[in-house]
Amino acid sequence: MSCPICDRETVAKYRPFCSARCADVDLGKWVTGAYAIPSSDPADAEEAADEIERRSALEDPPKH
Rank of each mutant, 00 (worst) to 15 (best):
C22S: 01
A23H: 01
D24Q: 15
D24N: 15
V25P: 00
V25N: 02
V25L: 02
V25E: 04
D26V: 04
D26R: 03
D26K: 00
D26T: 08
L27S: 10
G28N: 10
G28R: 11
K29L: 10
K29H: 14
W30V: 14
W30Y: 14
W30H: 15
V31L: 12
T32Y: 02
G33M: 10
G33H: 01
G33L: 13
G33P: 05
G33E: 11
A34Y: 00
Y35E: 05
Y35V: 09
Y35P: 04
A36W: 07
A36R: 12
I37F: 04
P38Q: 04
S39D: 06
S39C: 11
S40V: 14
D41P: 01
D41F: 05
P42G: 08
A43W: 06
D44L: 08
A45H: 13
A45M: 01
A45D: 06
A45R: 09
E46S: 08
A48Y: 03
A48I: 07
A48Q: 08
A49Y: 08
A49W: 12
E51D: 12
E51W: 04
R54I: 02
R54P: 05
R54G: 07
R55D: 04
R55W: 07
R55C: 03
R55F: 03
L58F: 08
L58C: 02
L58H: 02
E59N: 10
E59Y: 13
E59R: 15
E59H: 06
D60V: 01
